[in-house]
Design a protein around this nucleic acid. Sequence first.
RNA 1: GCGGAUGUGCCGGAGUGGUCAAACGGGCUGGACUCAAGAUCCAGUGUGCUUAGUGCCUACCUAGGUUCAAAUCCUAGCAUCCGCACCA
Length: 819
Amino acid sequence: MIEKKTDLNKIEKKWQKKWEEAKIFEVREDSKKKKFYVLEMYPYPSASGLHMGHALNYTLGDIYARFKKMQGFNVLHPMGFDSFGLPAENAAVKNKSHPKKFTEDAIKNYIKQMKMLGIGYDWSRMVETHKPDYYKWDQWIFLKMHEKGLAFKKRAPVNWCPECNAVLANEQVVNGKCWVHKNSDVQIRHLEQWFLKITDYADELADFSKLEGWPDLIKKLQKNWIGKSYGYNIDFKINNENWTIFTTRPDTLFGVTFMVVSAQHPRLMELVTPGQKKEVEKFLKKVKSTSEKDSEELEKEGAFTGSYAINPANGEKVPVWTGNFVVADYGYGMVMAVPAHDERDFQFAKKYRIPIKVVINPSDYKLNADKMIRAFTSAGEIVNSGEFDGLPSQDAIEEIGKKFGKKTVNYKLRDWLVSRQRFWGTPIPIIYCDKCGIVPVPEKDLPVKLPEEVKLESNRNALEGYEKFWKVKCPKCKGDARRETDTMDTFVNSSWYYLRYCDSKNDKKIFDEKKTDYWCPIDMYIGGKEHACMHLIYIRFYTKFLRNLGLIKLDEPSVKLFNQGYMYGEDGNKMSKSLGNVINPDDMVVKYGVDPIRMFIVSVASPDKDFNWSDTGVQGSYRFVQKIIEYFKKIKPGKSDEKIEHKVNKAIKEISEDIENMRYNLAIIKLRSLFESFENEQISKKDIESFVKLLSPFCPHIAEEMWEKIGGKGFVSLASWPVADEKKINEKIERAEQAVEKTVSDILNILKIVAGRGGVGENVYVYVLPSEIEFYSSAELSKRIGKEVKVFAVNDKAKYDPKGLASKAKPGRPAIFVE
RNA sequence: GCGGAUGUGCCGGAGUGGUCAAACGGGCUGGACUCAAGAUCCAGUGUGCUUAGUGCCUACCUAGGUUCAAAUCCUAGCAUCCGCACCA
């Protein structure tokens, strides 16, 4: 273990206090200054406090914000809390308390820890989403969406988590399980629920052209999730009624031998004939009881409905089945089945002995429907399709599609289900009146506040049982009415919070547009990639909606997005209590101090890559910090020589670039090497100041302390970032230095060989080309070797060279003689 | 099935056509200091040769290829990890 020489915690406290007193991180709009908005995704304040992953996230942002601030930008760097959510509610039920208390205690602790880590936030702008002055505007946006028809209620099959006692959005179902309760199977229930019509924005959300600064991975994940696909709608007549299906393969239309309607289709029973009712019901029962977790290799099953559909292309009558493999809410919940050319249809047809009809042949052979063992899904030549025979199937997609259907686009993206049957969330501002129907709460009555004195229940939303909340008068007819008791998904809160930071205290408007115009968009947004398909889609959706309302001018919320890597435990596993590998920031701060921890977590690997915590690793950072402190104890600024000036200016240039590109790991390496280069040399005050400035974003506390020691003005955190003097960067110096290093190592090698043979190398002679003589100092070499080293130019007449080795000297490679 | 990422010394990881493989950190070994330990400082640390010398060989998952030149580009494969998944 390392020895603690300096009380870093004392230094940290000292500067944290001074920063706070001087309010150096509080900012306001300033039209004369260029703004820069750095934001880390805000946390859910859990009872267990910040973990190391949070510390990494916030440190990454803090370094960037401090760097930009020193570069002269007006930097907005705010923090807040995503403080609605189930854990607080559950904890409150368990302890017969109120989630507000839990949440606010947790927030206090979070703030304390964030301050402890030296993160420079403008706390005057903090948002807490559970406060009425924040969620009022969630409700306001909801009303605006309702006004535009984007917030709507419908009865729908929904994902129900029995643990949450609430429904989940599609995005929150992971492999048939709840994203929070990973052991809880999600059930399908049919309920009346509120949705936000995010699908109206699907097309624009699928356009990533304004997101150059986002990682490709996130864009790909979103693209996949939105799942835009071009195809055709085709009408089939069933019982003299048109039923539309969606297909991307109209070229196979003549090969349809049956239809399949989803088992969850709301109008399924209309298709079932009395004779088939029993069989279909038997099948439906089986579908329901099948646990979702087995869905991976679920066998395709179904039942005949008794109805027949007419193929519009050839008038053929084909049976309509219901099946477990058709998704109810994609397309129209019904598909045309072409077993010859679709693998799923093929399996289904084989199982139920439905005919298979080939309509596309491969180029080199002919398919035989009776002998096929799998579907042929590639392109080929159209056959058995009347006038289209002979066409390449790729061309037939359009030809056949055009003739019998209508070109259209479909998305995998579903409307966003936002109703939650829970207490601890934003109340949905809606009133139900028997006479007037669904009535939005008038704007002037916002916010609809959550009651504080309510008694929580574990198995249902406490608002339902709290008459004072739901018993209201209709805003229209003044008659008796009932308030909506569902609350909104917490992702609603985080979909626009970045805008509220710009004007978080505004009680007249959602925000002052002049302020959001100045600060937005976010220039650097930092958070985990797990949000790719939830938060990061929702925040884009809200941004576009608010833009369409005319409130902001942004198309996208952030210019750049950075996803940090995951930090694992020392053993390489996810940190978890059961594995006992959790690293607690509070303990580590006491053990090592904040600055070494900050330095370690951003330098162990590239910040976008996963890495493991390492106790010995953080000790390495600790040693470096300690060395710096020791150095400054006895520093006497003097004059920098050419070499030091070169080193300093090169470091300024490269470190600035590295920080700009979030390559903090490389910046730290260069900072170390810079320190080593002047550690034992004279250095000017200006250059030593530059070093402290370069150190400051990473290790702000000791940087302030050192800044004070060398008599820097004000805070180093507010000093201007150094600019490299390109004229002083001289690569020749670097090369010469490397040559000297090599020579030292060569001399030592030779001495070793000599010693190995029983010789004693007392005197060392080095013969250098005249052009390089200035780089080789006898004194320096002697010190490094620990013996006297004499340096001669090869053309020195007076040199001592008994073996005539001088002639062997090469550029960058002096000859060496030992005796 | 679809998509993505990764593969470099004892370990964590730099390096994405030549200048240069292994920066930087950790670990280990040896030395200095010390009564000793810790801390600190110095040196060494891929393989195999060779050496009164500062060199050569071989090494970046495997196998091919492009190139005057490949860890880096291309092709195929292997391994590990991750995301989505019956989306018609």
